[in-house]
Amino acid sequence: MSHLPDLVGGFLTTLALVALSAAGAFALGVVVVVLRVGPLRVLRAVGTGYVETFQNIPLLVWLVLFVFGLPEVGVRFPLFTTAVVVISLYEAAYVAEALRSGVNTVAQGQGEAARALGLTFGQTLRHVVVPQAARRVVQPLGNIGIALTMNTSLAAVAGVVELTASANRVNLVEALPIPIFVGAGLCYALLAAGIGGLAGVLERRLAT
């Protein structure tokens, strides 16, 4: 297989997509969840609107809209950056929902107790809610990470040649669908297993 370097390049692109989008989705998801559980009604509405909008429209539509729409409003990123931004925005909605259900599992009385002690909203979050919720959200976040990895395969629509796209391209030249697609599948499984393992380790750490 003379096209192995192409596949390796595709895998590295996927790796970069996953790492950057996961970081972006987590950071943005935290912001959105703070808006959603926070005291300002306007911001709660903004957070809810954000989650609803991004969860109800397919990622493919978002990709096309951002790749071809953003330059029309004067924002022009390279294609790779656009893909990272779109996947981050999209998955942030899921991250926010996972975090919110984590926050909701912390008993109401805890928040009230913190308030009785005179803690502010920020202090309550930091000292009372987050430490308890953290362990419960690790597994859901791991699942979102795996889903995100799978979703990076759609970045080909934005002209980014990641693993799936490069497998497709190489297959068109070499016409060896089975080894190429099975190999690509194994790479994804490996990535997913890595994320799952990481989540497991983190969960055990936080349990203590």
């Binding site: 799936t164 297959n171 994804y188 499984a189």
Partner: peptide, 17 residues
């Protein structure tokens, strides 16, 4: 196993393989 394979890749299998 299925959870860790992108749907797009499964579609390619049906499409090409």
């Amino acid at each position: 196993v299925v959870r860790t394979i992108p749907v797009l890749l499964l579609i390619y299998v049906v499409l090409f393989v």
